[in-house]
Design a protein around this nucleic acid. Structure first.
Lengths: 227, 227
DNA sequence: CGCGAGACGATACACCGTATCGCGGGCCGT
DNA sequence: ACGGCCCGCGATACGGTGTATCGTCTCGCG
C-alpha cells in the first residue's frame, strides 16, 4: 500500500474474477492440453489468482468439472431450429452437438461419471423436444424417442473420439498410430481364430468418424414405422 | 535366510505375483471403491507387494487401466451364442454386455479416453459378428450394422450409469438423491421456459435404466427395412 | 476512531505417478 | 570352487495433486 495511487491501481487491476471466466478458462485449458492439465494450481496461475481463491467459485474440484461440462452443453445450443420437417430439425440439433463434442473431447471422458442436469443440459433437452414438436407426440413418447436418439448420439461421440484420444495419449502421429495398430491387428488376427474380425478389418474394432447418419436413419425409420 | 526350511517356506510363500492376479485385483478394487481408489501404492498394498514391483507388469499406470478394461471386456464374452434367429443371438451378446457393464461402472469413465483393441475386445467383436452371421451380410455391411448397434449400446450403458455414479460421488442415498434432484428440477422448470422438459419430467434429463430394447428394436427394424 | 467479524489465501498434509540409482543375488569365467 | 561382474529389484526422492486448517488482514459498523 505504498507509492502513488496509479501504480497501486495498475498493479491491483486484475479485474475481479468471475465464475464465467474461471469456467471458460478451464475449458480452454482442457481443450488445449487435456483435462488432466486442469489442476487448481495451474488454472489459478493461468488466471493470475491464488489456488485457494478459486474455491470461492466451487466447493470441490469435481464441481468445477460439472460446471465445465454444462458450459460445453451451453455451446451445443442452436440459435434457431429450422422449421422444415422434424427430421432435419432434429438433425440440426444433433449435428451441432457432434461438432461441439469434437471440439471438447475431454467431455466424453467424464460424461459417464456425472449426471448432466445443469441449466444448459435442460435448455439443450428443451431444444430437442422443440425440434420434434411437429410430430405431435405425447410427452412420454417424445421422451422415449429422444432418449434413444441421445443414447445413440453419445455413444457415437464417445466411440468416434477413442482413436484420437489414444493417439494423443501415446503422442503418436496419425501415421505412426495407424502403422502400429495395423501391425498389432495383423498379428492378432494372424492365428486364424477371429475370422470375421480379420475380414472386416480395423473398422471392426475402431468405429471411426463415419456412419453416424446411417445408424441414425435406421433408428428414426424404425421409430416411424412403429407408430 | 535362517531357521528351519518350512518356516522360511511359509514366510516367503506369497505365491509369485501374476499379471492376471494384479489386473483382477485392480478390477475388484475399482468395483468396490471406484477407479480413483486404484493407485499403484494402494494396489500394491492390497497384493502385499511393493509399489514399484508392479511396474514390471505395466510401463505406466495408464496401461494398467487398459488391461483392466480388456479384463472386463473378457467377462463380456458369452459361452454360447444361441442358434435361434439372428436377433436373439445378437441380443444375447448385448444383454451380457450390459449386465457386465453394470457391474463395472468405472469402465464408462475411461471408455472415451482409450481405444479398446485388446485381445478380449477383438474376441468380443468376433462374437458379435458370429451372432449375425445368419444374415449372410457382406463383411462391410455387417460392420456397419454392428457399429451402429455398438454405438447405441455404449451410449446406453454410459447414460444409464450416470445417475448412479453421481449419487455415489455425492454419497447420497437413493431417496436423498431423488429428493434433491426433484427439488432442483422443479425449481429449474418453475420459470416457465422449458415447457417440454417440464411436461416430460425427470426422465427428460436422466434416461434411467429402461428403454434399451425399444430403441434397439427401432434400430434393427430400420436396418432390416433398408435391405 | 476503535473494534469485531468475515473473508481470503498461505501453509501444510496426505497422497499421487514414476525417475533414479544403490544394493544384493545369481551367473559366468577361470 | 571360487571371484567378480552384471543386471534387476525396489527403496528413496521429486514434483506434482486436492484441500483442511487457521492466521492475518480488511472492511463496516457502533
Amino acid at each position: 500500500m505504498t507509492g502513488p495511487i496509479w501504480t497501486r491501481q495498475a498493479a491491483s487491476k486484475p479485474e475481479r474474477l468471475t465464475l464465467e471466466t474461471v469456467v471458460s478458462r478451464a475449458v480452454e485449458l482442457a481443450d488445449r492440453e487435456g483435462l488432466d492439465a486442469v489442476s487448481v494450481r495451474r488454472l489459478a496461475a493461468e488466471l493470475s489468482a491464488r489456488p485457494m481463491s478459486l474455491y470461492s467459485f466451487f466447493g470441490r474440484k469435481d464441481d468445477l468439472v460439472d460446471l465445465m461440462v454444462d458450459h460445453v452443453l451451453g455451446e451445443m445450443l442452436v440459435d434457431r431450429i429450422p422449421g422444415d420437417d422434424w427430421r432435419s430439425a432434429l438433425k440440426a440439433v444433433l449435428y451441432r452437438q457432434i461438432e461441439v463434442g469434437r471440439r471438447h473431447r475431454w467431455v466424453m471422458s467424464v460424461f459417464g461419471t456425472r449426471a448432466p442436469i445443469g441449466p444448459n443440459a435442460a435448455r439443450h433437452a428443451e431444444q430437442s423436444f422443440e425440434a420434434i414438436a411437429g410430430l405431435g407426440l405425447p410427452p412420454e413418447r417424445a421422451t422415449r424417442l429422444l432418449r434413444a436418439v441421445d443414447t445413440y448420439l453419445w455413444g457415437y461421440v464417445t466411440r468416434a473420439g477413442q482413436e484420437a484420444a489414444a493417439r494423443r495419449r501415446d503422442q503418436l502421429s496419425e501415421q505412426e498410430w495407424r502403422e502400429s495398430t495395423d501391425a498389432y491387428l495383423a498379428d492378432l488376427t494372424g492365428k486364424g481364430d477371429l475370422p470375421h474380425v480379420a475380414a472386416a478389418g480395423r473398422s471392426a474394432l475402431l468405429p471411426g468418424d463415419d456412419g453416424f447418419d446411417e445408424g441414425l436413419d435406421w433408428l428414426l425409420d424404425g421409430f416411424e414405422r412403429s407408430r
